[in-house]
């Protein structure tokens, strides 16, 4: 327990002193503001440019009524960016340690490798949770201020779906980090798996089972799609998450560092 605590403390200190936490938090606040801001400003922009557009023969563009739903639609359009920023920032969590040899001192002191992995995983989960909650809450508060969140159905459910997609991605990142030796190989493996999920999702029957379905959770907001449709994908996501972590531990224990 003392070993685990010590390494978690080290990982946590790293978040602060290397400014990782600060950067991801700034990105989440900015993205949180951007969604309602874009929803609010688009009609204003169109209005301002209406004359110019008419002169060029572009007319009759109808900007629909902007509601809380528009704001949330913007949110889900941008949210994969937050996941990508997170993955890029944490793709070096293990590989920089492999390359610099910083884990050698730790491991040769009798530190269990499983505990190293668990420490990193826990800290990444906490950072993801903080970043996502801040991002979601910022959009929620602004949307509530300008419009009314109660117009949107299943608001929290949709938010949770993207959140667990982030958790799943961290599992994938951990597995990739136990396999790859460089930052780039970790990104390729993680990105590759997500890309394969997207490609398989072309087949509608298969799409129902893909963890990437979570990123499309915006469809439940207007009530046209039932939340019950997500059961299968959640089950697959949970199972593959556990497999990623178990696999990562097994590989990491025999990893040449």
């Amino acid at each position: 327990m003392r070993q685990l605590n010590a390494f978690i403390k080290k990982e946590w200190m790293e978040q602060f002193r290397t400014n990782k936490l600060l950067i991801i938090m700034i990105v989440s606040v900015m993205m949180g503001i951007m969604a309602p801001a874009v929803a609010k400003l688009t009609p204003v922009l169109f209005e301002a440019m209406a004359d110019t557009l008419a002169e060029q023969g572009i007319a009759g563009i109808e900007v629909g009524e902007v509601t809380a739903l528009t704001s949330w639609q913007q949110f889900y359009k941008n949210i994969s960016m937050l996941v990508i920023v997170f993955v890029i920032m944490y793709s070096g969590s293990y590989t920089t340690e492999y390359q610099r040899g910083t884990l050698i001192n730790i491991v040769t002191k009798g530190m269990s490798r499983t505990k190293i992995l668990v420490s990193k995983l826990l800290v990444q989960l906490v950072v993801w949770t903080m970043a996502y909650v801040v991002n979601f809450a910022t959009t929620y508060v602004y949307t509530e201020y300008y419009w009314d969140n109660s117009e949107v159905k299943n608001c929290i459910f949709a938010g949770l779906m993207v959140y667990i997609f982030g958790i799943w991605t961290i599992g994938l990142l951990t597995l990739a980090s136990s396999i790859g030796d460089t930052n780039m190989s970790v990104l390729l493996i993680t990105g590759g798996v997500v890309a394969v999920c997207y490609i398989l999702s072309i087949v509608p029957d298969v799409a129902e089972y893909m963890p990437t379905k979570m990123l499309g959770a915006v469809e439940v907001l207007d009530g046209s799609v039932s939340t019950a449709n997500y059961g299968k994908a959640i089950a697959v996501l949970a199972a593959t998450y556990i497999m990623s972590i178990v696999g990562a531990i097994l590989i990491f224990r025999k990893k040449k560092i």
Binding site: R2, Q3, N5, A6, F7, K9, K10, M13, E14, R17, T18, R100, G101, T102, I104, N105, I106, T108, K109, G110, M111
Partner: peptide
């Protein structure tokens, strides 16, 4: 063990690093 080129976490101070080592051992 002293590796040929020992590497540490650059953002730590020596006392903090040794404390980490002490807790691990």
């Amino acid at each position: 063990y002293l590796p040929d080129v020992p590497e540490f976490y650059g953002y730590m101070k020596p006392t903090e690093y040794l404390k980490l080592c002490a807790e691990i051992t």
